[in-house]
Design a protein around this nucleic acid. Structure first.
Lengths: 239, 239
DNA sequence: TGGTAAAATGAGTATCGCTCATAATTGACA
DNA sequence: TGTCAATTATGAGCGATACTCATTTTACCA
């Protein structure tokens, strides 16, 4: 028992220190940027000697990679949590888009740092892998929509995926420079665009012209609901 | 005359050296990345002493910024040249999209380096300004489309602009990893999507009643038109 | 040709990421 | 509790690099 307790204590101490290093490093990286960050300052922030950092992380790039990795894993977990209770693919995609763009805007520093790693450090494999995992949330939602018959299967999913993430990424950057940071117009606009192109209107088979009038009505009702929602949330965006 | 000739010679020599530094730096930056690039190697490539570089460029970041600036200016000029002879906004946007994504793919190193500057160097003002100038090509084309009555005015142009550049940016990255690097599906799909959402279907004037309740009606009419058009165009995009 | 301002040089400086010999701490066992 | 081996921490020192500056070289004009 004594053995286990002490062993546990030791491990706890190590883990606490590891986390302290990460916390300090994150702070310094955000304040000074990757190059501007000093290992000495990171060590001081974690209240350890500079050499100790290198026991936990091979070098500066590895430390940065760990922070980036931690961020993307948390983001992925939060994304899943955000959409798990939502049934309809349209609403789920909408929620994911909202979550994504808000995350980008809130944690812009982290995003920029992650992207910079692509160039700063040659070894980006890890980060790329984490990005792929995150992106899988979208892929799953889209596939679910296809299975339910709400979305048409796209011959290359990545085309739609790039519209989704590309648009949100750029919009987040733009929105950050604006006074009005209402994301609703951007999100609704983009999802509606995807739905207009890939939504299965008549259910199963694709017909040239407006095939079944009844379907048009139901889609219009959905559109009205969406527009009304925009009217409530997006009122400020009309200027 | 002698005076002018010699004075010209001196200036020419200086300018030639400046260009030699830029050329050498570009090469080294591409080969080694920003951090990996050595000022000594850049100087050696330009066949000058290391200290001389600092007469022309304040520091490493300024040198990188000059390269980035040169690149974006050339890109902007080429973009204008690419679309100047094209009359119809749809074709022009298509051409711009093709040009943009191909440039991104061909000069991926440059793009990555430019983006990394955002983090590496705090002073990014210049690069941002050059980006804005480049983006103006798109804005002009869209406005032209609105003036001609081919496109509906969007309450916030940047929303469409971010769809355009965001999608192309992400798609370029994805395409680079693919065997098949055919940009046509991406480009056509994206422009068609924009056209489906913002193309003025019935032809001429838009209802400018922005803040009136009638706004909802006009927007609904646009939505109906889009849905109807989707029935026709959506067929092509499904393969 | 001689004088001067501009331009080039490269050894030297400051600073940083990282290493490693040494010290301190921890925990199993008697 | 005291001993000892293993683990963990330390920080002076090393190599490397961006950048400076006193000195030299070049370009130009009278």
């Amino acid at each position: 028992m004594t053995t286990q307790t002490r062993s546990k204590t030791r491990r706890q101490k190590v883990e606490a220190r590891e986390q302290a290093i990460l916390d300090s490093a994150r702070k310094v990286f955000f304040e000074k940027g990757y190059e501007g960050a000093r290992m000495s300052e990171i060590a001081a922030g974690a209240e350890i000697a500079e050499g100790t950092v290198y026991i936990y992380y091979k070098n500066k790039a590895a430390l940065m990679r760990a922070i980036s990795s931690e961020f993307w894993q948390a983001l992925t977990a939060n994304a899943w949590a955000e959409i798990e209770a939502i049934d309809h693919p349209y609403d789920a995609l909408l929620a994911l888009a909202r979550f994504h763009i808000k995350s980008l805007m809130d944690q812009a520093d982290m995003i920029d740092l992650t992207h910079s790693l692509r160039v700063v450090s040659a070894d980006v494999g890890t980060t790329t892998e984490e990005l792929k995992t995150y992106v899988r949330v979208f892929d799953t939602l889209y596939s679910r929509g296809v299975d339910r018959g709400d979305l048409n299967p796209h011959p290359a999913l990545w085309v739609v995926r790039d519209v989704f993430f590309g648009t949100l990424d750029y919009s987040a950057r733009t929105l950050r420079l604006h006074e009005d940071q209402n994301v609703e117009p951007v999100v609704t606009n983009m999802i509606d665009g995807i739905w207009a192109q890939y939504g299965s209107d008549s259910g199963s088979t694709k017909e040239p012209s407006s095939s079944e009038p009844g379907d048009l009505v139901s889609r219009l009702e959905g559109a009205i609901a969406r527009i009304e929602r925009l009217g409530v949330n997006g009122k400020a965006s009309s200027d």
